[in-house]
Design a protein around this nucleic acid. Structure first.
Lengths: 196, 196
DNA sequence: ACCCCACCCTGAACACTGTTTACTTTGTGA
DNA sequence: TCACAAAGTAAACAGTGTTCAGGGTGGGGT
């Protein structure tokens, strides 16, 4: 029933993209009528919301493992950055639902909140440890957190939209990504990130 | 005629977003019939493409001025980063057309190419000067260029999607942005960006 | 055994979308 | 004045998300 719809929708979304999948096609994939789906989900968005929550569950599971396995904070950040980008590449549809949808159309009360907030807390904690260890000079932890997140997030967008492929051409993406993450995490003296 | 359609479409796109504007609404805004538009543009996408080219023209004009006015390469990069983000905030629809659309559905032959490529060249050149000046250690210029672009691009996405507002809460966005750009541009010794 | 009710599901419809086609109007040059 | 090409239109096509009135079907209660 519900699970059946979700699995069919996930496969179709991942393969064809959210906008290219119609309720009629989801229904067709499981031999239902389009209207029947509305007994389990109030609209197409809600199917997505449920899948998004699943995505965060999957991501945060790996993230917890990475935190456990890497006690060195810099190594942990490097691994996390690469993992974030790998996730964006390997589960693009989940990724887009989780990190690219407009926050205004996300019900913050929904099942999304739990694993999503845990993921952010884990990251924030790591950054605070790094800042406390003096890896980034006097920089503010919030500034560092947003800067690093922006970095990997933006890189994911540039890769996914094809701009890296067009502009970097022959370079291997894997090594490029590794180099970029290293650059973002370079230790450096950096004044307090206040107004300047 | 053509100009009339473009102006109406631009206003509607900026105000309501590309997907929420139908050809019928564009036509209605200028008292045309929907079919009449197809005499000037072969489809809805082409209207967008034309507007995107306009956007690059506008952006690159400011970029040229900034290159002229700032001989210090680090100051130039800082100003350019902030300007990129300001453009993303103030002309969100142009910005999205220029930097967020899928490259596979962009006709590289079209009028887009000229100013778009000039913009990228100006940026690349500045980064190469910075690297040559030793601001970022041994890092590769391509790595630095993509890392910095990723940074401001990702930050624009995080702000636009509302994640910064939700997670940073009370902090002023302007000063946060300034701090983040400073952090991204912090001088630092950084090994060659090759595989690691 | 009967009846009735609640649930699940369906076909058809509604109000949209981008786009195409056949047709009418309009302006201009010969 | 006539003719022809350009400009604009209404209507239709194929698709979308969503809603709604009605079939069936299964499981109690009497």
């Amino acid at each position: 029933m519900r699970r059946l719809i979700l699995d069919a929708a996930r496969q179709l979304f991942v393969r064809e993209g959210f906008d290219n999948v119609s309720m009629r096609r989801i229904a067709g994939a499981i031999d239902y009528s389009p209207a029947a789906i509305y007994r389990y989900f109030s609209n197409k968005r809600e199917i997505l919301s449920t899948l998004r929550a699943e995505g965060f569950d999957r991501y945060v599971a790996g993230q917890r493992a990475r935190v456990r396995e890497h006690s060195d904070v810099l190594a942990r950040m490097r691994v996390e950055g690469v993992a974030y980008l790998r996730f964006a590449m390997e589960e693009p549809e989940y990724y887009q639902l989780m990190f690219c949808t407009d926050c205004s159309e996300v019900d913050l009360e929904g099942d999304l909140a739990a694993s999503s907030l845990e993921s952010h807390d884990l990251f924030q904690e790591t950054v605070e440890q790094a800042v406390a260890a003096g890896l980034f000079g006097e920089a503010d932890a919030d500034v560092v957190a947003f800067a690093l997140w922006s970095g990997v997030h933006g890189l994911a967008q540039l890769i996914r939209s094809g701009r890296v492929a067009v502009l970097a051409g022959d370079v291997d993406v894997e090594t490029l990504v590794a180099g970029i993450v290293d650059f973002m995490l370079r230790p450096g003296r950096c004044g307090g990130g206040e107004a300047k």
